[in-house]
């Protein structure tokens, strides 16, 4: 273990990380937001979902530094229902990150799985899977996610749908993102398939499933990490966009996108803080993750070294 750590800190990856202030800053911001989201119930000044604790009299209060109506209890002001903006942002980031990570995980499992099979089996299976990928790739991801969400609305009754909304979103965003993984992994698998160690494994009679997952999989996962990081930013944006459009997470358990949607109605009456603060949180999160992804791509790309 100590050896592994030493190797990591002596390696190129750590070197390029520790010598780029912007990347360190992005990592810190990402980590802070993730921690804040995980520990939201403990660090949030209020519980925005506790109906007994919120008071409609506190609604639409401006941030604390406003000299007229600012209330020291509500640092970033309150929304239309009297919920503390800072607390809703912390809880909202939780849902945004949950949907983001879960849908990326779903895409990875689906994409890597199909890519492995496609690359290893080849022939008709390969053609079939790649044709589907081609068709899907000719549509923007957001459109596919929208459509799946629309279908889910038709299948489930309204009350049930609100409960399932988060899972529907994870499924929709996950489905809309698998193609890139599948293509990358397929290509890598086709290269690995011809190498000696795979032939050796086949000759000594190891089952195809085992060869795929124990032998080939570890050798094709390199690029998946890079795509995954960039995809995470995209998944968070997609979730926020869907929620903003009103087809994502319902207002009862708002994500950052839902909060922005709620606040958007109050923009014209001057209550800008309801929209802008969740918006800033979203921008910070997405920008930090994007910068990390860009760095990772360049750092792991042997061509650029």
């Amino acid at each position: 273990m100590k050896q592994a750590l030493k190797r990591f800190f002596d390696g190129d990856l750590w070197y390029s990380f520790s010598h780029s202030p912007i990347v360190i800053l992005s990592a810190v911001v990402t980590l802070l937001i993730i921690l804040a989201a995980i520990f939201a119930p403990w660090i949030a000044p209020h519980n925005p979902f506790d109906l007994a604790a919120i008071d409609i009299m506190d609604s639409n209060l401006p941030p604390a530094w406003n000299e007229f109506d600012g209330d020291i209890r509500f640092l970033l002001g309150t929304d239309d229902q009297g919920r503390d903006i800072l607390s809703t942002i912390l809880y909202g980031a939780r849902i945004s990150l949950l949907v983001g990570f879960a849908s990326v995980a779903f895409s990875v499992v689906l994409g890597v799985g199909l890519g492995l099979v496609s690359g290893y089996v080849g022939g008709r299976t390969d053609t079939f899977i790649m044709r589907i990928a081609d068709v899907q790739l000719s549509f923007p991801a957001i459109l596919i996610a929208l459509l799946i969400d629309g279908v889910a609305r038709g299948i489930f009754p309204r009350e049930l749908h609100d409960e399932l909304a988060v899972y529907v979103l994870i499924f929709a965003i996950g489905i809309s993102g698998w193609v890139q993984y599948a293509r990358t992994v397929r290509g890598a698998t086709m290269v690995e398939k011809g190498k000696e160690y795979v032939q050796a494994a086949r000759v000594i009679g190891i089952r195809p499933g085992t060869i795929l997952f124990r032998h080939i999989l570890p050798n094709v996962t390199g690029p998946v990490l890079v795509i995954g990081t960039i995809h995470l930013a995209l998944a968070i944006i997609t979730e926020a966009t869907l929620s903003f459009l009103g087809v994502g997470v319902p207002p009862t358990t708002p994500s950052l996108g839902t909060l922005i949607r709620i606040g958007n109605d109050y923009l014209f009456s001057g209550e800008w803080w309801i929209t802008i603060f969740p918006g800033v949180a979203l921008i910070l999160l997405v920008l930090a993750v994007n910068l990390l992804g860009d760095w990772l791509r360049d750092a792991l790309n042997p061509k650029l070294r």
């Binding site: 926020a240 966009t241 903003f244 958007n264 929209t275 979203l282």
Partner: peptide, 9 residues
């Protein structure tokens, strides 16, 4: 990096 809808807002 900015989501379209935020730019609009």
């Amino acid at each position: 990096s900015l989501p379209t809808f935020l730019i609009g807002i």
